[in-house]
């Protein structure tokens, strides 16, 4: 009797299993279609994103200044490394290109470190220190995020004019040394760190400044990575503000140089040289991306911002 029951039970179980697997395979095939569709879309996205790079490469390995239309059937015809070296040479000796390159690096480095430093310290203060008017000051800082730069650009320009900072390094750099976005980002991150950890540090004999440098800041690595990346990209690609304050060519940064290569009067565009400049402009970003690839993804998922 008992064994009979057992076999009956088994059969029932098997039946249930069979039904379940049939359903599973149906689900699987729907899943497969979905997967293929997603992959196709991703391939399309890659093509869209890579095409400009591909085009840039084709141009910078040629010496011809023209864009071909219709395109040559063999895309690689006329490309060679020596052409690229030749383009590089002519770009590098064009105007004061090394100086412009240095300008970009110099401005970005100072803006990057000061903006992250100020952002982290101010963000920490807003998250952890109690002082009078904290909320009001914070919301004032946050409020500046809501105002688009073009709105304040004229006022900033006039300000720079009045203090005589037009066409100076400090004119490009100083207005950028603190960013409300960084302050906000760090404050939000520091708020997620449990207070008890800092209290434990207090009991362990660390003063507030040491708590920041030894405990809270190391715990905020993702926030540092995110703000480093965004500030770098923002400053390196910054175009509008340098365009407004810089009137002397010696202070040009790379985005301005690119603009210059576009052709001042629009008559002749030297595609090969322009694409070589594009490549040189992209190079630091690419290097940073290669090193910090992991943090790029983390940074985006952490802030929920788009690059």
């Amino acid at each position: 009797m008992e064994t009979f029951n057992v076999t009956k039970e088994k059969k029932k179980k098997n039946r249930i299993k069979r039904v379940a697997t049939e359903q599973n395979s149906a689900i699987l095939s729907i899943g497969r279609v979905k997967k293929v569709a997603i992959q196709l879309m991703m391939i399309l996205a890659v093509v869209i994103y890579v095409l400009p790079f591909y085009w840039m490469m084709l141009k910078m390995f040629r010496t011809s200044i023209f864009a071909h239309f219709p395109p040559n059937l063999n895309p690689l015809s006329g490309t060679s490394l020596s052409n690229f070296v030749q383009n590089l040479g002519s770009v590098w000796s064009f105007g004061s290109f090394p100086r412009w390159y240095f300008n970009s690096i110099f401005v970005t480095l100072i803006v990057l470190f000061s903006s992250v430093f100020v952002g982290s310290i101010a963000g920490y203060a807003f998250a952890r220190l109690n002082f009078r008017g904290r909320e009001m000051i914070f919301y004032t800082v946050l409020g500046t995020l809501m105002i688009p730069f073009p709105v304040v650009s004229v006022a900033s320009y006039v300000f720079m004019l009045n203090i005589g900072w037009l066409s100076t390094y400090q004119g490009i750099i100083i207005p950028e040394i603190a960013s409300a976005l960084n302050v906000f980002l760090f404050r939000q991150y520091f708020l997620t760190i449990p207070k008890e950890v800092e209290e434990a540090a207090k009991l362990d004999g660390l003063n507030p400044f040491q708590i920041f440098t030894k405990i809270s800041a190391p715990m905020a690595k993702p926030a540092f990575a995110a703000s480093f990346i965004y500030t770098f990209i923002g400053s390196w690609n910054n175009f509008l503000w340098p365009l407004m304050v810089i009137h002397s060519k010696s202070l040009y940064t790379l985005p301005l140089v690119l603009n210059f290569f576009k052709g001042v009067n629009g008559i002749q565009i030297y595609w090969n040289e322009m694409m070589t400049v594009v490549f040189l402009t992209l190079l630091p970003t690419l290097i940073i991306y290669a090193i910090f690839e992991r943090y790029f993804v983390e940074g985006i998922s952490f802030t929920g911002l788009k690059g």
Binding site: E196, V197, E199, A200, A201, L203, D204, L206
Partner: peptide, 26 residues
Amino acid sequence: VAMVFQNYALYPHMTIYDNIALNLRM
């Protein structure tokens, strides 16, 4: 005085050794 916390409040970026040693180092 020394305090033991409900949520442990260990320093997540340090090893257990450094967690224990921090106060002595200070």
